[in-house]
């Protein structure tokens, strides 16, 4: 794209049209039609009917509320972890560093169902900590803490994956300058590091939040599917579907799909900011380089 197509390698116009049509066909059938049908089916009875199926069902109301409380807690955990882990890996060299980076990605490769089962084996009634938790009267599995743990596990890589590359590309020079000028750790973080990584961090938070709201497999295993207690929005979609209440199921699904679209818009805006800042950094670095070269020649 950076240069005009050469007349020799330029494909024919009809060839291009066919390829673009094929791409639209692929994305159309796989993405656009399903997405459109969620909203069309959900609003087929009009806005009033849609609102009534959501608002007049106590279990659905609770599911929406539960999802909106579990996701931020899991995202908060991931934000703290993501920043700490990125700082550790980007700024220090220590044995086992690359193994640690591989471990960050592990939750992406593990089936969410397997993750949920592992949590049941630790915190469940017959689990490793089951007797201890029972003695203390704490409930993790089939309860809110289990939902948070499962959600945190599946979203664990998302923040660190966005922050780490940006932190690495910025380099430690500004932070070292701040330290040499006498800033303490907190000052370095809030005044130098955080402003530098803020867009990448926000990007990670948005992605983690979307995944947290939509998580199904891991949450399904630990929730116990208690309507009005441990059913999150995606679990409510499944339950309504199993009860042959297709319109209600579609209504909840449309809320989730709407949240996904909001996420994508936010992601798009943030990505443009991240790219713009990366370009600025490169330009500044190039300017530094030429200045240094000039000084060297003189």
């Amino acid at each position: 794209m950076s240069r005009p197509a050469s007349p020799i390698t330029a494909t024919t116009r009809s060839g291009n049209v066919a390829l673009v049509a094929a791409a639209w066909g692929i994305v159309g059938v796989l993405v656009v039609v399903p997405l459109a049908s969620v909203f069309l089916e959900a609003f087929s009875g009009g806005f009033g009917a849609w609102w009534a199926t959501l608002a007049h069902d106590a279990d659905t109301r609770h599911a929406i509320w539960l999802s909106l409380t579990v996701a931020p807690v899991a995202v908060a955990f991931n934000t703290v972890f993501g920043i700490a882990a990125a700082w550790l890996v980007a700024r220090f060299r220590f044995p086992g560093r690359s193994l640690l980076v591989a471990l960050f990605d592990l939750p992406f490769s593990v089936s969410p169902v397997v993750a949920g089962l592992a949590l049941v084996l630790i915190f469940g009634r017959q689990g490793l900590l089951g007797p201890t938790l029972a003695a203390l009267g704490w409930k993790v599995i089939f309860s809110w803490p289990g939902l948070v743990l499962a959600t945190t596990f599946v979203t664990l890589p998302l923040v660190v994956r966005e922050v780490l590359p940006v932190m690495e590309s910025i380099g430690p020079e500004e932070e070292m300058a701040a330290v040499s000028l006498g800033a303490n750790g907190w000052q370095v973080f809030t005044r130098v590091t955080l402003p530098n990584i803020r867009w990448a961090l926000l990007h990670g938070v948005v992605l983690a939040n979307a995944r947290a709201l939509g998580e199904f497999g891991a949450v399904s295993v630990v929730s116990g599917h208690i309507a009005g207690v441990t059913d999150t929005m995606p679990l409510r979609v499944e339950k309504l579907f199993q009860e042959y209440r297709q319109p209600a199921s579609m209504a909840v699904a449309s809320v989730l799909a709407g949240l996904a679209l909001v996420t994508l818009v936010a992601k798009y805006v943030i990505e443009r900011r991240v790219e713009a800042e990366a370009r600025e950094r490169q330009a500044a670095r190039a300017a530094d380089g030429t200045a240094a070269e000039g000084a060297g020649q003189r």
């Binding site: 700490a84 882990a85 220090f92 640690l100 939750p107 089962l117 664990l156 330290v179 750790g185």
Partner: peptide
Amino acid sequence: LPGFWPSAAVTSLVVTTMVILPLTVL
């Protein structure tokens, strides 16, 4: 640069309890 030990503590705590422990138990 400051913050090696705090960030190492948070990271290893989370990775151990959230990733290594569950999969090891499994």
